[in-house]
Design a binder for these strands. Sequence first.
DNA 1: GTCAAACTGTCGGCAATCTGACCGGTGCCG
DNA 2: CGGCACCGGTCAGATTGCCGACAGTTTGAC
Lengths: 226, 226
Amino acid sequence: MRVLIVEDDKVLAHGLNETLRRAGYVVDAVPTAEQADAALRVTEIDLVILDIGLPGVDGFTWLKRLRGRGGEQTVLVLTARDALTDRVHGLTVGADDYLAKPFAPEELLARVSALTRRGRAIRSKVIEHGPLAIDLARKRASVTGKALDLSQREYALLEFLFSNVDAIVAKDRISGAIASWDEQLSPNAIEVQISRLRAKLEPSGIRIRTVRGLGYLVEPWKDEKP
Amino acid sequence: MRVLIVEDDKVLAHGLNETLRRAGYVVDAVPTAEQADAALRVTEIDLVILDIGLPGVDGFTWLKRLRGRGGEQTVLVLTARDALTDRVHGLTVGADDYLAKPFAPEELLARVSALTRRGRAIRSKVIEHGPLAIDLARKRASVTGKALDLSQREYALLEFLFSNVDAIVAKDRISGAIASWDEQLSPNAIEVQISRLRAKLEPSGIRIRTVRGLGYLVEPWKDEKP
DNA sequence: GTCAAACTGTCGGCAATCTGACCGGTGCCG
DNA sequence: CGGCACCGGTCAGATTGCCGACAGTTTGAC
């Protein structure tokens, strides 16, 4: 379970860090919203602890943007005591819970454990392949966070191919997977779909290989070694 | 917001149904615990109103089983007046609140609204999407502060769509969300509702995309960057 | 070099969707 | 009680945009 602390006050950040680490969480801490973005891009974070009063981009603005671009991380907001406005505003903008400063370490731990427990169950199944992510529940695919616009057939094909990474899939298996039972797809129809899908994927470096006479193949993703 | 009534007394069940429906909830009613299970399996239910005295499997037993297998729905238990034992027992077994019979409709509504509010309390009570704001507790939507005039169905559709931003929602999921379980909505009925809703939203620049063959999609709001 | 397999741009058919018109049901009001 | 307004569904004609056929070109195995 991985926690990101976004807090500019060094003393407080350090305290949070210690408390959580001792409780068995993996903790990262950054002082600004910009660096929080960077951290989210690099690592998979389960929970964000966000101070509202940040230098530069403030916590609310950042949270709003995060939700706006589809960020689903659980967020616990830290507010000044009595800042009821903050509290309401925070929940409106998409926080999952809030905690008023000052607070006891146990209080923090209680909230954090409640939130992480809850988050688990909800997350949907996602196929990842380098920069490509396919969200099965929502039927949406994205590359580097940018949503792809796919038609029904294209999506079905994408889902099927990337569910069978590192396996050669024959055209008639594809045909069976993306067309409804009774309809008969010509081999060429599949070639056309592949071609269309490639046009949308290859700009991002995602490749579908042709295996002459046998079918198509998606190779396991390899990070470039610079 | 979807409510399931588990009550074998037809008169009472009907009364509850009417009261809740008029208050804007989507309501299903079943007379036995077995059918309650079936309903939960088929549909996503937010709140269960459970009579303790049921034929066959009684309310307590059912509730216990529900919790036992991880059911997280909010449950409001109906007990006979003065059955203090029932009350204690009910709360022990996992009810979220109880109400002694007989009760006034307003009393019921007050409890129900308190409970449904609580369920949502952690995640925001208001969905914001650019200029659009949907107040879940009050069942009101507004654009740039101006209230929208929506019928019940339109509101339910709006709430459902914008609770699933960035996900493609199929027509039958919509149908399950905005209609009670016994009514059968034709695909066209949904198209018509979508069309009506669009007529009210698009003047404000809020768009509901069609994804041919799959369903509808609300994309995350993007602020214009000048 | 030969030839089958695969690629891809173009195009038309057609199913999916949109939407205006209509209508039966319900609740409110005088 | 009668009438009216509104809701929410069906129907049908117009519209849209996906998808496979076709065909000309390219690729790769031998």
